[in-house]
């Protein structure tokens, strides 16, 4: 991971000629599809507590967070105070903090400083996943391309959810709702195939996550917290057992 060995590299030989921004727009399409289904449901929830399309649209464009926005809607519905809003937001969205820490290490030292104010807006589970899957340094244009397409889908879905309510057929919502998970698999499985340790990590993570959702007491923990606890524990243990060697990764 030195400067010389960590140049921005291609990820997919099939798209070698495409500029990073265009590649971002392309990879944003499946994210956009998945977001549309989720945010449509979000819009229906927002409408339920009396938010209008403009408010819900602003919320989605400004926050770009699924669990975070569901929490935000509940906070508004319960007329929460500022302190409760801020603390709940921090807890529900804490995983983005970890993701930003991780992605900050993929930026070239020569990258202009303003990107450190633009990139944070783009940190969602999916865009983070794809941005970290790039080999070597991250070219921010790739992240911005994905963000434009996916936030468009996210915001449109929320607004339409408020305006159209329940008219989207269940089969369409069902089919679209697994799109995001399919993408996650496409990010973590190919490296796991090449690297036994990462394969083990993925299996352990999924098993632990499955146990957390069925075991008594543990299953009461919210999804946001579960992600934080398991990430700290498993990635922490992995870093002790199998430290990443210098200069080897790129």
């Amino acid at each position: 991971m030195t400067q010389t060995s960590k140049k921005t590299q291609e990820i997919d030989p099939g798209t070698r000629q495409l500029p990073w921004f265009v590649r971002g727009l392309r990879d944003g399409i499946p994210i956009c599809m998945g977001y549309f289904a989720v945010s449509f449901a979000l819009g229906i929830t927002a409408r339920g507590i009396g938010m209008n399309a403009l408010q819900a649209g602003l919320m989605s464009a400004g926050m770009v967070a699924s669990a975070g926005e569901f929490a935000a809607i509940n906070l508004i519905a319960s007329h929460a105070g500022v302190f409760e809003m801020i603390t709940t937001c921090i807890v529900v969205n804490m995983r983005y903090f970890l993701m930003s820490c991780s992605l900050s290490q993929k930026l070239s030292p020569s990258l202009p400083f303003y990107h450190r104010f633009l990139l944070p807006y783009c940190i969602t589970d999916e865009i983070f996943g794809l941005s970290s899957a790039v080999k070597g340094y991250l070219e921010p244009k790739y992240t911005y391309g994905m963000t434009i397409v996916s936030v468009a889908g996210w915001t449109t879905g929320t607004v339409l959810g408020v305006l159209l309510g329940n008219i989207m057929p269940a089969w369409a919502v069902n089919a679209l709702s697994v799109s995001l998970y399919g993408m996650f698999l496409a990010i973590i499985i190919p490296p796991a195939r090449e690297n036994r340790f990462i394969l083990g990590l993925v299996v352990i993570s999924m098993t632990a996550s499955g146990l957390f959702s069925v075991l008594p007491v543990l299953k009461e923990i919210s999804v946001g917290f579960k992600v934080i606890i398991l990430t700290l524990a498993i990635a922490g243990a992995a870093a002790v057992i199998h430290p990443v060697e210098e200069r080897k990764e790129a």
Partner: peptide, 29 residues
């Protein structure tokens, strides 16, 4: 090295945890 390794493993663990079992319960079946 520890922090670098930890941050390197974060995406794999996070995405795996978020995918399973959520994908199984994402649809109505």
């Amino acid at each position: 090295t520890f922090v670098r390794s930890f941050l390197y493993y974060v995406p794999y663990v996070t995405l795996a945890v978020m995918t399973f079992p959520a994908i199984v319960t994402a649809t109505d079946n």
